[in-house]
Design a protein around this nucleic acid. Structure first.
Lengths: 137, 137
DNA sequence: TCAAAAGCTTCAGTCTCTGGAGATATCTTG
DNA sequence: CAAGATATCTCCAGAGACTGAAGCTTTTGA
C-alpha cells in the first residue's frame, strides 16, 4: 500500500494533482487508513502512470477518461480507443516537428552567441525569424 | 493596416487571444479605425508571431513579456534574454525526447493493431507500459 | 514519546485562453 | 446606394488543468 506522497514520487504527478484526478473521477477513490489517509494499490500506481503519459502525449483529461473507461471494459471493441488515441497523432507529430526545429536553432544559438546587445542576440532572431518559416499555422 | 481577423489568420493566434494578449500588455494597443476597430501594423504582426513561437517553445507569458521588453530595448545586454530562453532548453529537450518515443510507439501501433478488444489493443499497452520506461519523472 | 513530516479538507487563485450576448462597423453585391 | 452578410466591439463568465495556503490530524522515526 502506497501513501499519496509515494504515489507522487513514483509517478511524477504532484500530490494535489492526484487528489484533483480523484475528484475528476480519473482515478478511483482509494481505500483509507484508520486515520483517513489514502492508501493506494500498485494497480492504482499503474493507472496514474498511464494518465501521466497520456497527458504528456497531449490528451485531454476528457479523452483520458474515455480511454480509462475502455481499458476497464476490455470486452468492448477497441475502435473507439483507437479513434481517440490516433486522433491526436497528427497534432503530436506537428508539435514534435516544430519543437525539433526550434531545439536545433536554440542549440546553435546557445553554442555561439557572443553578441553584446539584445538586438544582436540570436535568440531574438530565432523567435522573430521563425515567423518566416514554412510551417503553416 | 491589418484587421484583427487578418492578424489572426496570418499568425495562427485566435482573435480573442489577441485581445487577451493586448489586455495582458504583451502587445501594444493598436490604432483604431474611425469605427473603433483595431488596425495593426506589420510590425505588430511580427511581434504576435514572435509571441506565438515563444509560446510553442513553452515560454510563459511572463517570460515572453520580459523578452519583448528586452527586444524593445536593444541597448541592454542580452544575458538576461539568454538566461530566460536557455532556462527552458533542457525542459524542451526532455519533452521532445518523450514525445519522440511515444510517437514512434504510436506509429507502430497504428500500423499493425488488429486486436478485436480494447484489452488487446497496443495503444493501451503503449500508454500503460510506458510506465516501465527508463525516463525519470 | 514526542516532534517533524506528511496527510486531510476546503477553498480560493493562477494561467491561458475561449465563447456568448448584444450592439456596432465594414464589406460585398444587386 | 441600400441592404444583408460578415466581422468587430466590449464585457463578462467559464473552462481546463492544476496549484497553494490555512488550519487541523495522522504517521513516522530517532
Amino acid at each position: 500500500m502506497l501513501s499519496i506522497g509515494e504515489m507522487s514520487r513514483r509517478s511524477g504527478v504532484k500530490v494535489p494533482t492526484i487528489r484533483y484526478y480523484e475528484q475528476m473521477n480519473l482515478i478511483d477513490a482509494p481505500e483509507r487508513s484508520a486515520g483517513n489517509q489514502r492508501r493506494y494499490t500498485h494497480a492504482a500506481l499503474d493507472r496514474l502512470t498511464f494518465i501521466r503519459h497520456a497527458r504528456d502525449l497531449g490528451l485531454s483529461l476528457e479523452a483520458i477518461r474515455e480511454l480509462v473507461r475502455l481499458s476497464e471494459n476490455p470486452a468492448m471493441p477497441h475502435d473507439e480507443a483507437h479513434r481517440i488515441a490516433t486522433s491526436h497523432l497528427a497534432a503530436i507529430r506537428e508539435r514534435i516537428a516544430r519543437l525539433k526545429r526550434l531545439e536545433k536553432e536554440l542549440t546553435r544559438v546557445e553554442a555561439n552567441c557572443h553578441a553584446d546587445q539584445a538586438g544582436d542576440c540570436n535568440i531574438m532572431q530565432v523567435l522573430a525569424d521563425h515567423g518566416r518559416c514554412e510551417t503553416e499555422h
